[in-house]
């Protein structure tokens, strides 16, 4: 577990450094993911320890969004005036884009 955490944090740090050096708009963790992915190709796969830690963390991925999600119920009053527009944009917007992209990939992709 500890070894896995160290590897992941190390690659996050490398990602943050790369982003800072290149002034890239991509966040550090995403750059870290790409670097680790490249390293896995060179090393030909993760160690069992890293694999296990990654699996545990990914299993709780949605939990890590929870504190930010609670924030939607504590917005300043001047935003609350726009609630109907925000909700319509989220619900209808997401539904339409999902449907269109589902149609598109069904036409383009080949099923297995």
């Amino acid at each position: 577990m500890l070894q896995g955490i160290i590897v992941l944090l190390l690659f996050q740090l490398l990602g943050e450094i790369l982003v800072a050096l290149t002034h890239s708009p991509i966040p550090g963790p995403v750059a870290g993911m790409l670097l680790l992915w490249l390293a896995l190709h060179i090393k030909r796969g993760p160690s069992p320890e890293v694999q296990r830690t990654a699996q545990t963390l990914v299993q709780y991925l949605s939990l890590f969004f929870l504190p930010a999600g609670v924030g939607l119920f504590f917005l300043p009053p001047e935003i609350q005036r726009h609630w109907p527009a925000v909700i319509a944009a989220m619900v209808a917007g997401t539904f339409i884009t999902m449907l269109l992209s589902a149609w598109l990939i069904r036409r383009l992709g080949s099923s297995h």
Binding site: L9, Q12, G32, L36, Q51, Q55, F64
Partner: peptide, 18 residues
């Protein structure tokens, strides 16, 4: 702490991707 874990978890997504 919870919010912080989003970082290493994003990095961890490299493994299923690989």
């Amino acid at each position: 702490l919870i919010y912080f874990l989003l970082g290493p978890t994003t990095v961890a997504l490299a493994i299923p991707l690989y």
